[in-house]
Write a protein that binds this DNA or RNA. Sequence first.
RNA 1: GCCCGGGUGGUGAAAUUGGUAGACACGCGAGACUUAAAAUCUCGUCGCCUUUGGGCGGUGCCGGUUCGACCCCGGCCCCGGGCACCA
Length: 823
Amino acid sequence: MDQEAPPQFYNPSRAESDVQDYWTSHGTFEATENSSLPKYYCLAMFPYPSGQLHMGHVRTYTLGDVIGRFQRLQGKNVLQPMGWDAFGLPAENAAIKHQVPPAKWTMQNIAHMKAQLQSLGFAYDWTRELATCDPDYYRWEQWFFTRMFKKGLVYKKAAWVNWDPVDQTVLANEQVIDGRGWRSDAPVERRELAQWFLKITDYAEELLDNLDRLPGWPDKIKTMQRNWIGRSEGVEITFPGVDQPGITVYTTRPDTLFGTTYLAVAPQHELAVAAAKSNPSLQLFLDECNQVKVAEAEMAQLEKKGMPTGHSARHPLTGVDVPIWVANFVLMEYGSGAVMSVPAHDQRDWEFARKYGLPIAQVIEPEAGEIDLESASFTDKGRLVNSGEFDGLNFDEARNAIATRLEALNLGSRQVNYRLRDWGVSRQRYWGCPIPIIHCDKCGPVAVPESELPVLLPTDVRFEGVASPLKSMPEWYETSCPDCGGPAVRETDTFDTFMESSWYYARFACSKHSESMLDERAKYWGSVDHYVGGEEHAILHLLYARFFHKVMRDEGLVDSDEPFEKLLMLGMVLQDGVKMSKSAGDAGDPQVLLAKFGADAVRMAMMFAAPPEQSFEWSANGVESANRWLRTRLWNPVMVHLDAINSAGITTIDKAGLTEAQKDMRRITHETLAKAEDDYGRRLTFNTVIAAVMAMMNAVQKFHDESSQGRAVVHEALNAAVLIMSPITPHICHLLWRKLNDEPLESAVWLRVDETALTRSVVNVVVQVNGKLRGQLEVAPDTSLEEIERDARALDNVVKFMHDKTVRKVINVPNKLINFVVG
RNA sequence: GCCCGGGUGGUGAAAUUGGUAGACACGCGAGACUUAAAAUCUCGUCGCCUUUGGGCGGUGCCGGUUCGACCCCGGCCCCGGGCACCA
């Protein structure tokens, strides 16, 4: 940029750093709790400090900033904080690869990314910044966990993990590539480890029901969460054992019980494991099943395979023996790890039965028509057949009758089941929050007392291999039992990083507070009014945070039931068709564009590219044209106008004395204001805000009027343009607003729409014949149908298409359309 | 595989409640300014046909509802996100 450029030329790099200095020195965006204005907490999902900002970040934070700045213009007391989701796997990967301690690597990344965020001019209150790897943060997470522990919301059970037999370590799902460890290339094995779980299922019902009380959430996210929680009503049924303990299954189709021709258990089910001890080929099959990584997607795409266990169980109502199979598609984590298989009425069971020659017994018939069990199963509900005394009952009747019978026999019970599983929070990793538990041989697991928190994560570590250094630090894990004082060891696992992101939004209210997890300020800021983030977080993060919020509420820490009132779920910024990631490289790096065209142009290009919920492929092309528009269509016209009013002065608008052209210009200005307000506040489509301002400025360019009223009308239009654009391009608008109004932008309020300016003297009515466009009419608003019909019938082109036909119907949409239906 | 989305000109997109498909831009083409270029400005730009009035076709594909469908319904194809240890 030309350092000598006089101030009337647009120079983004100088202008933006000046404006940013102004914001910093004036503390413009530092939020306080003692405002008379209504509070507005606007939050964008905090980033993992991977080291480089990419365009996905730019999009998320710009969208959040636009919302926050718009709400500020609407007279709200806005809080927009920023922090760092600083624990996680990439820091360990970097440590292993480059021998740099995760803490150091993370802090360097934070410093770099903070500078990048600041150069984009977001209206953050940086005084509230937090990093989750800071002991001042995670000590309260540990404290909260011990509260949950004492409440009985925490328990330990064995769970399956991906085990790398060469590196002797647990692998994350993303570290397993085609069934092999990413570093060792060894085939992964499933292994059972004792893990800590949080009883999120205790809250399943509330998490589901409260979705109905979140009107500010997109329906698609609520649907995803509903499906994920997966409430179902069914019956738990016990098939008594023949030569082994009975098998308990859960089914939502008890009406098909008589069609059960075999049972299927998960490969990890105890019966399968026991049976394999004396059956080498079954053991071989189980081993094969255990060489698939621990992910539902893997499981679901496997070829369906099974093997008989050699055992059978007794049908609870018929007493007939049914064989027990092991099947690789039965999930150990869902229900009881066993299912009753009804091949006639379940397609997966049908395919399995056909493959292995198992019998298929029809017990449901359709209300009408024929079925062919040779070609497929019949899965609709219908009437029972071949079911003894239950024959003839429909689904509801049969479900009740069979459940009642099973309950009487003590072989079943009605059960509401959730697909949602408890949250396993143990990670066998170093770079995370230490789980504040001490294992004592005498007392068992004991929560670390509050006075001894935080359990500090040592930061001066070296990665010798790939395993967590904590596992080989006796000086760290050897301790004494808080209860009996005897020798004991610390838990060396750390928390799932979703723990940190489940409550950070609340901590921002009082991030520096050292006396408790949250204080009264958390109640002042309350729920996040608008939460902005990527749709990849639609389920897990949001569900865990909702769960934490409810537990915090039950502990008296917050007042509300839900953490996020309104939710904006952003589509992905794609690169080469997939979501941008840390490894994506330079194409996602905004630095070059920032230096060349400025933050305003980058922000504007990003907002203009697509509406927020839509995923799109990033292209840098728009940035240059955004810069050009700001310079030639916003900055320059304001400068020309300022010259004009400097020499000729400025007057107020005389509404009664305007020419038609001046009225038109004013109408466009106020239509644009109204549209911008609606798009910003309700529709959240900022691309169309920009388009509307562009159209308005095109009209200003064409509006040549040297009169004093003309200047006043232009003045109003330019003020509207600057104000409307200011949430998106805050730096240039800060400068232009001051030049136009001699007051700082942050004391400006949104311009009111002048309803009288919106009235039109003519409206355009479309004339159709049989739904096809045949002409147009310019008429006064609210012209009578008779008059419009008469004028429309007189149009040459309408005559052409109607002259030899009979009008059967006339459709009229007032001030918009008239349609002659002829035949 | 299962759950949730998406598919509109050469490109990004707009069309808000079923009512003029393609606003606003990018790109491209033509022109103005210039010795020239850059920058800037003006005009044109869905395809085909045309007597230049206009006509026909067109929103992933096939079918349906309706006076009228990008929009609603049924069936398919393709792309993206999530699937519990990436965050």
